[in-house]
Nucleic acid binder design. Sequence first.
DNA 1: CGCCGAAGCGGGGTAAAGTCCGTTTCCGGA
DNA 2: TCCGGAAACGGACTTTACCCCGCTTCGGCG
Lengths: 206, 206
Amino acid sequence: MAVKRTDLTWGAPQTERADAARNRQHLIATAREMLAEVGAERITMDALAERSGLGKGTVFRRFGTRAGIFAALLDDGERAFQELVLAGPPPLGPGAPPFDRLVAYGQARIRFLMEHQEIARAALDGRQPIPAGAQTPLSQTHIRMLLGQIDLGPTNLDLLAVQLTGALDGPLLLYMQPTAEAPLSQRVELLLSESWHDLVRRVCRP
Amino acid sequence: MAVKRTDLTWGAPQTERADAARNRQHLIATAREMLAEVGAERITMDALAERSGLGKGTVFRRFGTRAGIFAALLDDGERAFQELVLAGPPPLGPGAPPFDRLVAYGQARIRFLMEHQEIARAALDGRQPIPAGAQTPLSQTHIRMLLGQIDLGPTNLDLLAVQLTGALDGPLLLYMQPTAEAPLSQRVELLLSESWHDLVRRVCRP
DNA sequence: CGCCGAAGCGGGGTAAAGTCCGTTTCCGGA
DNA sequence: TCCGGAAACGGACTTTACCCCGCTTCGGCG
């Protein structure tokens, strides 16, 4: 009904008309500006449309929903991250033992989520159709792949990967949100990273 | 700004005027009816107010936000669950070894989340102020407590509890949502339960 | 180069969330 | 029992996400 595109991620599809692509870029850029100026909370679709000199309809066509904008923003920022994971230097990139890569991946993802927490949370959409950002596929499949390279005995690796992804995302997406009193310090990042290391060590030891 | 009450959970506060309490009950009951009839997706605040014969202002004062209603519904349903956990028969309730209780708790929570997934997801609110349901405190503190009774060596048990909670909630709240094609079968529950067992075994073994 | 169908655009329209404030109800104390 | 102020109520009002559909623009093709 509401969804016309079958495109899984509301990111850029295969072929997009030149004007459409231009507008998408422009909208993302404008959204970034507004994000810096007033915060995710106060970005309205009308304001975004007006500020970028486009029609409201255009905004919705490009991103489908308010959360979609933030998903796009996240996706955009994630491209660099993904690059590092797939082709960067070890231990995050290929070349290191899978266990070390797993630890490094989690720590990198925690950092990424902390840096983009505002966007990531805004990309969350309790309503039905769209998963919590284009992010998850990467996390899950990557973790899944690394698990496959570690000898874990008989285990459902797919589900283990999902659970570990939850252990990574849950804290920052669901449970810990910054408030005026407790603004999610760097210390939290450090603690979460250590804890992830510990968790993975426990899960993977023979 | 928007929040006047400092009350952590948007559930019933310590002392509530008789009419207020009555209305809360009535609203929750009405919400349950509508839930059964049209599904969470289609419950609107206006309709809820009208159907229960109350003003819209009342609905918002009681629950703060649309998501708040579902949080209240969840909270309500969780009371029985909590009872089982705190005082029911082992291994879920007290009396069994902590490891077994941990396994049982996770499996019970998975079942609970599957049964209430629609509500739980609707209680999710990407916007700032309120955490993802009054649920989490229970999970986290309970898991935390059980971990404390297991000898795990030097570890940050608080964070481990948060991560395990994420491993429990993440799959059902963030990643797996029922669609028309794949309606989240009982099989999923079974697999998740097994996987949880496996995860906990890995985490807790010496 | 000009045609034409598809894709994209714009902005007014709708419905639902959330706010405000004057009025009403509760209830502890005198 | 009656009073006063705090709490709760209601519903009109405002804001915002999201839809619709006539019009414009793009870009492949003859």
